[in-house]
Design a binder for these strands. Structure first.
Lengths: 152, 152
DNA sequence: CAGCATCCTTTTTGATACTG
DNA sequence: CAGTATCAAAAAGGATGCTG
């Protein structure tokens, strides 16, 4: 096999420094070393395929029933929906309410804690909205650069 | 996939309203219906176990080499690190620089686009920092409520 | 050092069937 | 309707060996 690097973004200059301690160039929200642990925990919780989506739909629609929520999220199996909701409930982000009627009626809504998280994610939503074009462009460029490096 | 139930709600329950169209109760960053699609795309991109962590470390340390980055993130295999970085690079969030020396020297840094995302995520960091106790408490309560309901 | 390739284990997810 | 239980498929992730 030949040169297997898919592509090179950039080549050159002799090495000098790396891992410079200089802080974040912008906003900077540098969490302390201990805080990082728990931040990671939270990320682990939320960083899955469905949690954010469910959170989003609950934010948008307020009080929603199980099946309806599944429709809103779209593409989720009831198994995953159940699991995701249980997790959110366990973390105090969602409140589950059972109405003792027949047939069963269960609805879900964000707790205030859940709402606060949703708010926190707002920034990311907005970012996605504002920058998705740039991402799409970057992706396309990456692909073409990639295939340029692949001698077919 | 969800099985498509015949009709959504053909029954009227003595329950108030559900799925109310009224907007988010608080901050409100309601993305338009079309925008949501791409927002979801972005979420799909970022919502995995490592991406945010890598982003975070790059935010904190600026320019970092491959191995070092792996150490900083902690617990990540080189396979996953490579994959995550490739993805970030493809999305234009990270720039990979190869220094043609022996032994190889490759470093990574955020692009300005990556920095903007990192900034957007700041809110989540802060949220985690502020609310992790509440989450921990909720979790504990959930567990005890749970086992109280389990007749062993 | 910075990967890629391959094999293998662990998780995750989905599709069904069944229940109160 | 709103789940649970179960089985099977798929994806993610890890370990190792091998390069330039």
């Amino acid at each position: 096999m030949f040169f297997t690097y898919p592509k090179e973004s950039d080549v050159a200059y002799p090495v000098q420094d790396e891992t410079r301690p200089s802080p974040a160039p912008q906003g900077d929200c540098a969490p302390g070393p201990e805080v990082e642990t728990l931040v990671r925990e939270m990320i682990g919780r939320v960083a899955d395929k469905w949690t954010m989506l469910v959170l989003e739909e609950l934010t948008e629609h307020g009080v929603v029933r199980f099946t309806r929520l599944g429709e809103l999220v779209g593409g989720i199996s009831q198994k995953m929906l159940t699991k995701t909701l249980r997790q959110l409930e366990a973390d105090g982000l969602v409140r589950r309410t059972v109405h003792p009627v027949i047939p069963p009626h269960v609805d879900y809504r964000l707790t205030s804690l859940g709402e606060s998280l949703s708010e926190a994610f707002c920034g990311v939503w907005i970012w996605a909205e504002q920058h998705h074009r740039e991402v799409a462009a970057a992706r396309q460029m990456f692909r073409s650069t990639e295939e340029a490096a692949t001698p077919d």
